[in-house]
Simulated scan of single mutants.
Amino acid sequence: MSTPSEPGRERSEPGPNAIVGERRHLTNLAYRLLGSLSEAEDAMQETYARWYAMSRQQQEAIESPGAWLTTVVGRVCLDVLGSARARRERYVGAWIPEPLPDRTEWSTGQASGGADPADRVTLDESVNMAFLVVLESMTPAERVVFVLHDVFRYPFAEIAEIVGRTPAACRQLASSARRRVRAAQVSALPTAAQAAPVRLFKEAWEAKDIEALVDLLDPDARMLADGGGLVGTVLRPVEGSKRIAEYLVHIADKAPG
């Protein structure tokens, strides 16, 4: 299988170091496509399994190993999104993307040391939780096209090969995805700038200070909760700053310690 070179990448020999060096890029891409670090890791492992299943001669025939790996992980993620969409339609309650664990200190906003593979995910606005929630509203094809083009800057001609559509169809999918983003009014506030209000919110929650929580929330705030199928949680949205604050304090009362 021959694939075009990736944007800004020259042809390279498919040596072990070059192939392993793609892990960070693949993890970043797969996490944004799937919204789950564990699923992203699975997709990356499947991609590498397909690479190493080829003979040396087949590997050497590939013009750009990095582009080949990106194409395969994109297709794997597209398949996962298709099956996940069916599962999530049967899911009881809200489905919320899986946040990156222990990536940001509450008080400083500085990234802490994380274990592999979390430490390979580059933090930027495309892993903002609100942004990931909007991605969940997209069809699998919309999401793959949007992330590849608008986040990773891949040309539509290369994306078309990954999703099995024409470049023109990919442009339409990207436009549809952008309309979803605009309609959701995702905040453009940089992640670092969110650290202070998040810290204040955490302190108010730990102090079980309902008034402080209400002051920090928009009066018309709407909260969704997802127990991941592992713990109990509210199945319907909690609406209004006061009700949300009371619910959060109720959770704090049950928290260990």
Rank of each mutant, 00 (worst) to 15 (best):
F152A: 03
L216P: 04
A225I: 04
T27I: 15
R165M: 13
L34W: 02
R165L: 13
R88Y: 10
W68G: 01
E41V: 08
G93K: 01
S175C: 12
F131Q: 03
R24P: 00
P14N: 10
L216E: 04
A188V: 09
Y91E: 10
G66N: 01
L248F: 08
P197G: 06
T27N: 12
G232H: 14
R103I: 09
E6P: 05
L33S: 01
A30C: 09
M138P: 00
V134Y: 05
P101I: 07
S38E: 15
N128S: 12
D218S: 14
E41K: 14
Q58A: 15
G35W: 06
H25V: 05
I251N: 11
V151M: 03
P256Q: 08
W205V: 11
P237K: 04
A196C: 03
L224G: 07
R11I: 14
Y48H: 06
R243Y: 10
I244K: 07
R103G: 06
W68R: 08
P167D: 06
R88W: 09
R23G: 04
T108E: 02
G109P: 09
Y48W: 07
Y52R: 06
M44V: 15
L33F: 09
R199C: 15
C77G: 03
E239G: 07
L123A: 15
E63N: 14
T71D: 00
A86I: 14
R180I: 04
A160N: 03
D220V: 12
V181M: 11
D253W: 11
P99W: 02
T122N: 10
V163R: 01
V76R: 02
